[in-house]
Each structure stands twice: as structure tokens, then as C-alpha cells.
Write a protein that binds this DNA or RNA. Structure first.
Lengths: 208, 208
DNA sequence: ACCTGCGGATGACAGGTGTCACGGGCAACG
DNA sequence: CGTTGCCCGTGACACCTGTCATCCGCAGGT
């Protein structure tokens, strides 16, 4: 008998975490050795429990250095290179996929893939293969590269919740005029009409 | 040996659905008899499989008559009064809770409750008790009643994604000036500064 | 018939927003 | 060195938005 694949589950929703653990426990060659609910707890738990593969949700609370699951994958590659990351996320946004792969994730599945395929994905990732939803991979290529500058992205992140320009300006420590210039530029690049539309499109594309 | 509680799982994310099924299968007195991924499939599957309790996600695709899990709960009460509904949702928005209870749901738990409590909640609901997250119940009362008129709510729903007033107007078949009046009124009632902020607050309160 | 309330619309106004042109500073690159 | 590109800012302009007062039509009450 070979030793089982050691898994870490990272998802902020305890119910989903527990349910995934129950699902994966049905596979004799898989062993869940740790569960965490925050992105900044991933590395320590992975190292401490000698995990082989980490299942990471993207939308997760965390610290400013490790704010989400993608950052956790990057931190794993840096601090625990032997551990592989498999993103398991709700939103199949093309930019999420691209950013996750850039961060060093070995796989990417969305939460509406059939349950039986998850264990297979884990085994593939553990074997050193890449696992990517083929439909999503196509969309990701069609989406194109991020045309936004860092400042434009920063301003758009704040613009997401619809606050007035003045408040965006004080949050990012810029003048209101400068913020309007960045927003105008971003609106032009995204082909939208308002800053909120631009921000939402940029988010769906994974540009911010 | 008493007969087990017969469950229906409704969640659009197949992975979560399967994982919940695995989790609940660990309980000897529970039996998952059906799984669906759309709100408008709930009633038929519940009746056809003689379900006792339905676990319903709120954010689910559906038809125009039964667009989400809350509508599914209402449909169940109308067409299958013996079946009880337990909402299992990601977002603990106070208005969701209120609307779910008005729709006839017997319970409401959020997805970050600990996994072991889910089976307990199912048993309580099956026994005829109400199960409500106590923290959420407090927020719901604090949130207060919906101060918006039907038109204000309708306009805010479209305003959610940040489109300009002109496009809102054509979508709801009103003049642009009238839309601005409703938006202004809604902004005043919500104490916000822009239509997008007002729309987001109204959504979080469950007013739209 | 009268008043009242409400949905819808209009017009006017101040202030916010999107666009553009332009300026200076700075780092990277040929 | 000059050029390029991004950063940050300013000022001006047209347009959009949020606010307010006002009006019309229509249904309910009395």
C-alpha cells in the first residue's frame, strides 16, 4: 500500500470545507490532514502537516500580504515549493485562471464541475500534471492581456462599490483630478461608459 | 429502526452539492434522495422522490416564475405543503432571511456554520422547529422594514451594475427624469451619495 | 363635485463626472 | 544624449447626476 496523498483544504465557508472533506474522505488514497478558513493560514498549516496538495478557494479573507487564495498559492510556491496548489473556486473568471497560473497553481477547477472529478484532479496535480477546465482555458485566451496600468487598477478597485471620486481620491492618496484621469483612461480601455461598469468588467476579466 | 429523513439538495454548484451529499451520508438517519441544480426543478424532484426536507441554496438559476431558492421555497409551500425548506446560503444578508421566512422556509443557515451543525439543523427542521442563525436574526431586526417603493426598488435593481441613467430609463420604460427622481429619493432614504451605493446597500438589506 | 394622494413627467440649477490638452518629474532603453 | 512611457497634477469644457419645485392625469374617499 502506497502512502496516501495528504491534502489541505482552504475555504472560508466551514460548511463547504467540511463537506469537501467528507467527499474526499471517500477516496482511500486521499487524506485530509488540515483545514483552514483564511488565506494567511495556508502556508503554516501546509508545512506543519506535510501536505502534498492544497485545495484553495480564491475568495477568502486574509492579511494584507496574503489577501486571497491566489496570493496563498504564490506564498506556497515561495515558501514551500514542494507543495502543489489546486484552485477550487466559484467564479470561472478568465483572469482568475491566468492569475492563478502565474502565481504557480498547478490546477484550476470551478465549483460546478461534477463531484467525482475532483479526486481525479487532485491525483493529476499530485502527479505533477496541470489540470485546467478546458472551456475556461479558451475564454482566458480570448480575454487577452491586462491593458491597465497599476494605478488604473488601484483606482478601479475602489471604484467597484460606487463611491464618489472625492472618496476614491482620499483612499488612494491622490488628487481628485488625477483619479478622474485614471478613470477616464480605464473607461476608454474597457469600452464602457461609467467607472462602475469599467470596474466590474475589469474584475470579471481578472484585471484587478 | 425509524425510517430516515429524506433530503433533497438544491445548489447550482455540483461540487458543493456532491460534497454536501457526502457529508450528510455520514449520518445514519439522513438519506439524500435527490439533487438538483436549478430552482425550477425543486418542486418536481421533491414530490417525485417524496422528500421530507429540502436544502435550498438561494443563488441558483431558474425560470422567470421560480428564479431562485427563495422562490423555490415559496413554490414548495404552495404545491407541496408537507415538505419543509431549509435555506443554506453563502450570504447572510438580513433581507434574505426575512424574505426566506416570508416565503415559508423553516430554517436558514449560512455556509460558514460548522459542518456538524448542519445535520442537527435538518433534524430540527424535520421535527417542525424553526432554525435561524441567532446572530443573523438580530441583524435582520436591526435592519428594519423596507422603506422603498416598488418603483424605487425596480430602478435600484438596474442601477446595481452602474449603467448610466439613460440606459436605466429604457430598461424600465420610464423617462430619464423620472428615473432620476426615484434614484434621488432612494439615495435620500438610504443615506448614501450615489445610486450605486444606494443600490448596494438596498441589496445587502434585502430591500430589492 | 371636491379634495387628497400617487405615479409619472418636466424644467431648472448646482455640483459631480468624463474628456481633453498640457505641464513637470522620473526611470528605462536605444 | 534623446526618446519613450508612466506617474501625478492642473485647468477648462461639455455632459451627466442629484435635488427641488411644479405640473398633469387618475383613482379613491368624503
Amino acid at each position: 500500500m502506497v502512502s496516501p496523498i495528504r491534502l489541505l483544504l482552504a475555504d472560508d465557508q466551514a460548511l463547504v470545507r467540511g463537506a469537501l472533506a467528507a467527499l474526499l474522505a471517500l477516496e482511500p488514497d486521499l487524506l485530509v490532514v488540515a483545514e483552514v478558513g483564511r488565506a494567511d493560514d495556508v502556508v503554516a498549516a501546509a508545512v506543519g502537516n506535510h501536505a502534498d496538495v492544497c485545495l484553495l478557494d480564491i475568495e477568502m479573507p486574509g492579511s494584507s500580504e496574503v489577501p486571497d487564495g491566489i496570493a496563498a498559492a504564490a506564498a506556497l510556491r515561495r515558501d514551500a515549493p514542494g507543495v502543489r496548489s489546486l484552485m477550487v473556486t466559484t467564479f470561472g473568471r478568465p483572469g482568475y485562471l491566468r492569475r492563478a497560473l502565474e502565481a504557480g497553481a498547478s490546477g484550476f477547477v470551478v465549483k460546478d464541475t461534477p463531484a467525482p472529478e475532483l479526486a481525479d484532479a487532485v491525483r493529476r496535480v499530485h502527479a505533477g500534471l496541470r489540470v485546467v477546465d478546458p472551456l475556461l482555458a479558451g475564454e482566458s485566451l480570448a480575454g487577452g492581456a491586462n491593458p491597465l496600468t497599476e494605478r488604473e487598477a488601484e483606482v478601479l478597485r475602489v471604484a467597484l462599490d460606487g463611491v464618489p471620486v472625492a472618496r476614491i481620491a482620499e483612499r488612494v492618496h491622490l488628487s481628485a483630478g488625477t483619479v478622474r484621469n485614471y478613470l477616464s483612461s480605464a473607461i476608454g480601455k474597457t469600452g464602457t461608459a461609467t467607472r462602475v461598469e469599467a470596474a466590474r468588467l475589469a474584475r470579471d476579466r481578472g484585471w484587478i
